[in-house]
Simulated scan of single mutants.
Amino acid sequence: MPAKSKAQQKAAGAALSAKRGETAKNDLKGAARDMYESMSEEQLEEFASGDREQKPDHVK
């Protein structure tokens, strides 16, 4: 299931980067940290994938 907003997609990308060891886990904040702890690398890849142009900035 891809992200529903640009913010979700960005948070998933940050969490994915930390899962892969490209960035430090301590640099994550908020939703990205929660995603890092609760989702697998495969789930994060799916969530972060897709086109951003048609997505709203935020979803309530």
Rank of each mutant, 00 (worst) to 15 (best):
A11E: 03
E42D: 06
R52W: 15
L44V: 12
G13F: 10
H58Y: 15
N26Y: 10
E37V: 05
S40A: 05
S49Q: 07
K25H: 15
K55R: 02
R52Y: 12
Q43F: 04
H58N: 12
K6S: 00
P2C: 09
A32V: 05
G50K: 09
S49K: 06
E53N: 10
N26F: 06
Q9C: 01
P56K: 01
Q8C: 05
A15Q: 03
A31E: 13
K4Q: 14
G50I: 08
E22P: 07
G13K: 13
A48G: 01
H58A: 07
K10G: 00
E45D: 11
S40Q: 08
Q9S: 02
E46W: 12
K60G: 13
A31S: 11
A15D: 02
Q54M: 07
D34M: 04
S17C: 04
G21H: 01
D27Y: 07
Q54R: 09
T23P: 11
A3V: 06
E45C: 03
G13V: 09
K10Y: 05
A11R: 02
A11I: 06
E37H: 06
K4P: 02
S5I: 02
D51V: 15
H58Q: 14
E41T: 12
L44C: 10
E53R: 10
M1W: 12
A31W: 07
A31Q: 14
